[in-house]
């Protein structure tokens, strides 16, 4: 019984992180209407940038290192939009997607060039957790939950309680109409990239805190984030949140039935099931 409770707790924990990835991915999708294949690399670079600033030449403490890590990930997000996606905004989708895949591959191997392919951790010593209702949790894991809650509140405030958030929602509903009413679309798109990259960075760091760092971590989490946004309804930020938590739970509970080697394939399996059972979910948001 306590094993199941523990799996549920771990699932929620992973779900929180996936939710952050999925929310960022779906936001860019809403505004620019394409799946950013390089979103996984923002996750991975966010985590590695923190590693960089906590590591050799800098030796910043975690809270200080967070600031440049966040800043540079946002720059990376804005940079990929400015250099690659902006010139391609008016071309066909295939061109855009291949370019996004190219960025993803470029950044992934860039990380591998600097840090190598081996697993790394932030090097915190593992502290003994405390037990609550037969569930053991560590300080890191509490931090993950609190950070996710914090991010969700910030996203809510930005989207629904600020002018720029209103503009973002307007642009995603109808770009032309938003332009006509005097909304600065460029500024809004920039803002979207900032939130999306920041969420990816925070999520990546939390994931690395909970597990480890590895150049391949971006790609696999892109698939999970995508499964989460499909579950929640494409373009729906809160749907992405629930989708992410659901994927996290499903993944960790599946370990009770199947080999852990396949844990990462659960998200894909759910995606296929969803498509077979409820393809209409997607047709609704096709255009």
């Amino acid at each position: 019984m306590s094993y199941i409770l523990q799996s549920i707790f771990n699932g929620l924990l992973a779900g929180c992180i996936y939710a952050l990835f999925a929310m960022g991915l779906t936001m860019v999708y809403r505004v620019l209407n394409f799946v950013n294949f390089a979103h996984g690399e923002l996750i991975m670079w966010g985590a590695y940038l923190l590693y960089l600033f906590m590591g050799d030449p800098f030796h910043f403490p975690l809270y200080v290192a967070l600031i440049p890590a966040l800043g540079f990930t946002i720059l990376l997000g804005l940079g990929m939009d400015w250099i690659v996606f902006k010139p391609l905004r008016r071309t066909n989708r295939l061109t855009l997607l291949i370019a996004a895949l190219g960025i993803s591959f470029f950044l992934r191997n860039g990380a591998q060039l600097f840090w190598g392919a081996e697993l790394r951790t932030y090097g915190f010593e593992i502290k003994r957790g405390w037990r609550l209702f037969h569930i053991s949790m560590t300080a890191n894991q509490m931090a993950i939950i609190l950070a996710t809650l914090g991010c969700i509140i910030i996203v809510y405030l930005l989207l629904y309680r600020s002018i720029i958030g209103k503009a973002m929602r307007a642009v995603s509903d109808n770009l032309e109409l938003a332009r006509v009413t005097g909304i600065n679309a460029k500024k809004t798109i920039r803002f979207t990239w900032i939130i999306s990259s920041a969420l990816a960075c925070v999520g990546g760091i939390l994931l690395a805190l909970d597990t480890n760092l590895q150049p391949g971590m971006g790609m696999i989490n892109l698939v999970k984030a995508f499964a989460a946004i499909l579950l929640g309804g494409v373009g729906n930020v809160w749907g992405a949140l629930w989708g992410g938590i659901f994927i996290g739970l499903a993944e960790n509970l599946s370990v009770l039935f199947i080999s852990t080697g396949y844990k990462d394939s659960i998200a894909f399996g759910m995606m296929v099931l969803l498509l077979l059972l409820r393809p209409r979910v997607l047709y609704g948001s096709q255009e």
Binding site: V35, F37, M219, L222, V223, F226, L230, A267, F268, L282
Partner: peptide, 8 residues
């Protein structure tokens, strides 16, 4: 979506 599904 087909792209991501095949990637996965």
């Amino acid at each position: 979506y087909f792209g991501i599904a095949t990637l996965g």
